[in-house]
Amino acid sequence: MQAFVKTLTGKTITLEVEPSDTIENVKAKIQDKEGIPPDQQRLIFAGKQLEDGRTLSDYNIQKESTLHLVLR
């Protein structure tokens, strides 16, 4: 499924993900596309910070959801 990641600069990245993907996995995909190390990434969805060990389905993130990427 497709999900979108919006950065603070307003850029939107499109990712191909599965509901079973972990947040860690998603961060690795963002690193592949953008070169941002996962340890600098914080992903926010519905106002919550997403934890590495959880999956997209844990957070009820469905296709075409938009996550927000904040860098630390």
Rank of each mutant, 00 (worst) to 15 (best):
L43S: 00
L43H: 00
A3G: 03
T7S: 06
E16S: 13
S20T: 13
G47N: 07
S20W: 14
G10N: 05
N60H: 09
K6S: 08
L8Y: 14
I23L: 04
I44S: 10
K6V: 14
M1E: 03
Q31I: 02
L15S: 00
R54A: 08
L71R: 08
T9D: 14
Q49F: 14
M1H: 05
A46S: 09
A28D: 07
T22G: 03
P38E: 07
T12G: 03
E64H: 12
H68I: 15
I13K: 01
V17Y: 04
L71H: 08
R42P: 01
E18G: 08
K48G: 06
S20A: 09
L50V: 04
G10V: 02
E24R: 15
Y59H: 03
E18R: 14
E34L: 15
K33N: 05
L50I: 04
T9V: 07
Y59G: 01
L50E: 00
I61K: 03
Q49T: 15
Q31G: 07
D32C: 08
K27T: 02
L56W: 04
D58V: 04
M1R: 04
L69F: 05
T66I: 14
A3M: 15
E16K: 09
D21C: 05
Q2K: 14
M1F: 15
D39N: 12
F4Q: 05
R42H: 12
I30C: 01
I13M: 05
D21W: 10
T66D: 05
R42V: 15
K29L: 09
I61M: 06
T66F: 09
I61T: 03
F45M: 06
L56Y: 02
K63L: 08
V70T: 09
K11Y: 13
T14C: 09
F4K: 07
Q40F: 09
Q40D: 09
P38V: 15
T66C: 07
I13W: 06
K63H: 15
A28T: 10
I44L: 12
P37Q: 06
P38G: 08
P19Q: 07
Q41Y: 14
Y59T: 01
K11G: 07
K48T: 13
Q40E: 11
L71T: 10
L69N: 00
R42K: 11
L67W: 03
T22Y: 08
K63I: 07
K33P: 02
T12P: 03
R72C: 11
L67R: 01
K63Q: 12
T66K: 06
R72S: 13
L50R: 00
Q41T: 04
P19H: 07
G35N: 08
G47V: 02
Q31C: 11
V26N: 00
S57G: 11
G53W: 13
L50F: 02
K63E: 12
A28G: 09
H68Y: 15
K63P: 15
T55C: 06
N25T: 14
P37W: 06
P37K: 07
N60L: 08
S65R: 06
G10S: 04
V26A: 02
K27I: 03
T7H: 05
V5A: 03
P38N: 07
H68K: 07
I44E: 09
I13P: 00
I30A: 01
G35C: 05
D32G: 09
V17D: 00
R72N: 12
T12V: 14
G47E: 05
T14P: 06
Y59S: 02
D39G: 11
L15P: 00
N60K: 10
M1A: 03
F45T: 02
K6W: 07
K29N: 03
N25G: 09
K29D: 02
A46I: 06
Q41L: 06
P38Q: 13
Y59K: 01
G10A: 03
T14G: 05
V17L: 10
T7P: 04
G53L: 08
P19A: 10
E51P: 03
H68N: 08
S57Y: 10
K33C: 07
F45V: 03
A46W: 09
N25R: 14
V26I: 13
N25F: 11
R42G: 06
I61G: 02
Y59V: 03
V26Q: 00
E18S: 15
I44M: 13
T7A: 05
I30F: 02
T66H: 15
Q31H: 14
V70M: 11
K6F: 08
G53N: 12
D21F: 07
L43G: 00
L71C: 07
S20R: 09
E34C: 13
Y59Q: 03
D32R: 13
K33Q: 11
A46D: 13
D52T: 05
T55L: 08
Q49D: 15
R42M: 15
N60D: 10
G35E: 03
F4E: 04
L56G: 00
I44T: 09
L56D: 01
T66E: 09
I23S: 02
Q62H: 11
I36H: 09
K48Y: 10
I44Y: 15
D32E: 14
V17W: 03
N25Y: 11
F45Q: 02
N25S: 14
T22L: 11
P37E: 07
I30V: 05
I30E: 00
D52Q: 05
K33W: 07
M1I: 10
